[in-house]
Each structure stands twice: as structure tokens, then as C-alpha cells.
């Protein structure tokens, strides 16, 4: 498990994260929401030791991030919003292989993993292509593949669908959601798109570096006034479902888009 214990982090004299506590268990999908500047991306960087707390601790499977080596850090895979900022290889294959080379994984094993992951993400045909020639969705798949080949136990995904169009967004989201379930990977999924948090096991809301809500999606999103006050949108399906239920147009208050359309 990843465990944040009373974590504080500052940029200069300004606290970006204050007294933050959270656990992410293996196989658990945790959505982290919050407005711009609320501290979400700082939390992402604290989770794998890229940043170290000023106060408090972050533990990965029992080891403090201030003490763990590269190998354990690789068990917490981090993917950012803009894949263009993350490419290091001249071909897709080189790019995916980069992390494995750093971990000194044997050549044959590296090749096997690259083939397996690239097939899974349907980017096998691009292995000898330059990442710059790919579309936005394909680039993000390459960035995800580069992390998955390291066989992470946890994934920290920082607004990975923000630059994608609706079809690519859904494809990437569904892929990571189902993969995490299948492979028992713990996920911290950072997003502005609240509807992506509807299927999460747990939703956490940050505001001004502090946790202001934590719970199952239905509990968290039901607090409309809090969500409004911290600049987090309530998913359309939940808002409409709630209002139509209050109006007596529907007989059930549901969370998901599909469920809601079914009862209409």
C-alpha cells in the first residue's frame, strides 16, 4: 500500500500540501479531484519519491520514500498529462525500453515485456516509429507503456486524458481502469473530469493543499455545496439524476450515466 502520513510539502514559504493522509491499497482505484493549484500534482510527485515531504512521511509497501531505491520507486509508475514532455527515445520501442534499461533488465526479458505491453495497448505496429509522428492518444499510450513495462504495483496518473478528444479519452480511461482491476494495481487517478471518478473505489477532494472530502463517489458528490465551494464539478449524470428524482420524474437517484439513461 501507499500511505501518506501527516504529509506537509512547501514550495518556498507557501504550503502546497498540508497534513495530508491517504492510503492507496493494491487493486484500489482512488480518484483525486481539486481545482488548479490545489496540490494534486504535488501529491503525485510525493507518491513515488520524486518529491520528499518537509514533514510527515510517505510509505510504499512499508518503506519510506526517503529511503527507497530506484527499483522500488519504479514500482510506483507516474504518467503525466502531456506525453510530449516525457519522451526520451527516438523510436517508440526505445522510449518504452528506457525505464527497463535503467533498471538493468536483461535484453530478452525487456524485449518480451515491450512486445506484450505494446500488443496490449495496440501500439505494436508503431515500435519503429518516432513518437512525434503519433496522434495524441497514441502518444499517451506510449507513455503508459513505458511505465507498465516496469511492472508497477501502483500507478499515479496525473490528468492523463486532459489533452485527448472524447473517444481517445474513454479508450485510455477504460484501459487503465480495467488493467488495474485485472492486475491488482493500486491507482491514484488525478483528474478534472469528475465523471471519470464515478467508478472509483474512493474519491478524495483537495482544496488549498488540504483534503476536504474522502469517501465513495456517491457520498462525496452528494455534498453539492462543498463541491461548488472548492471548485469541483459534480458529474452531470449525478446532478441530473438527483434533480429529476427530487422532481418526481424518476423513482431512483443513481450515479452513472448508463444507469441514469436506463431509468429515464
Amino acid at each position: 500500500m501507499i500511505r501518506f502520513e501527516n504529509v506537509f510539502f512547501s514550495y518556498g514559504d507557501k504550503w502546497a500540501v498540508q497534513n495530508f493522509n491517504l492510503t492507496i491499497r493494491k487493486g484500489e482505484f482512488v480518484a483525486l479531484l481539486g481545482s488548479n493549484g490545489s496540490g494534486k500534482s504535488t501529491i503525485a510527485r510525493l507518491a513515488n519519491g520524486l518529491f520528499l515531504p518537509n514533514k510527515g512521511s510517505v510509505f510504499v509497501d512499508g518503506f519510506s520514500t526517503s529511503e527507497i531505491g530506484e527499483e522500488l520507486k519504479a514500482k510506483v509508475g507516474l504518467v503525466f498529462q502531456n506525453p510530449d514532455d516525457q519522451f526520451v527515445g527516438t523510436t517508440v520501442e526505445e522510449d518504452i525500453a528506457f525505464g527497463l534499461e535503467n533498471l538493468a533488465v536483461e535484453r530478452e526479458e525487456a524485449k518480451r515485456r515491450i512486445l506484450e505491453i505494446s500488443e496490449l495497448l495496440d501500439i505494436g505496429k508503431y515500435l519503429r516509429t518516432s513518437p512525434s509522428m503519433l496522434s495524441g492518444g497514441e502518444k499517451q499510450k506510449v507513455a503508459i507503456a513505458g511505465v507498465l513495462v516496469m511492472q508497477p504495483r501502483y500507478l499515479i496518473l496525473d490528468e492523463i486524458t486532459a489533452l485527448l478528444d472524447p473517444v481517445n479519452r474513454k479508450e485510455i480511461f477504460d484501459f487503465v481502469f480495467q488493467l488495474a482491476r485485472r492486475k491488482n494495481i493500486g491507482v491514484l487517478y488525478i483528474t478534472h473530469i469528475s465523471s471519470e471518478a464515478l467508478n472509483a473505489d474512493k474519491v478524495v477532494v483537495l482544496h488549498g493543499g488540504k483534503k476536504v472530502a474522502e469517501g465513495i463517489p456517491a457520498e462525496v458528490f452528494r455534498n453539492f455545496s462543498l463541491m461548488e465551494s472548492v471548485g469541483v464539478s459534480v458529474p452531470d449524470s449525478f446532478y441530473l439524476s438527483n434533480e429529476l428524482y427530487k422532481l418526481g420524474i424518476t423513482t431512483k437517484d443513481v450515479l452513472n450515466e448508463e444507469d441514469f439513461l436506463k431509468i429515464l
Partner: peptide, 30 residues
């Protein structure tokens, strides 16, 4: 591309409420 969720809901409701005008946001619909 995708059809906005509010349009999907509007289409369903329009069958029950024929007088419902086209709505461009959830708030407008509500």
C-alpha cells in the same frame, strides 16, 4: 466525437414532455 450527456437525457425526456425545448446545459434543462 460524443453526444453531450445532456442531449441524451433531453432526447429521452422529450418523449415524455413534448413541450421541452432543446437544452444546451444541464442547468438549462433543470
Amino acid at each position: 466525437l460524443d453526444v453531450p450527456f445532456v442531449v441524451k437525457v433531453w432526447k429521452k425526456l422529450k418523449k415524455r414532455f413534448p413541450e421541452l425545448p432543446f437544452c444546451r446545459s444541464s442547468k438549462e434543462l433543470v
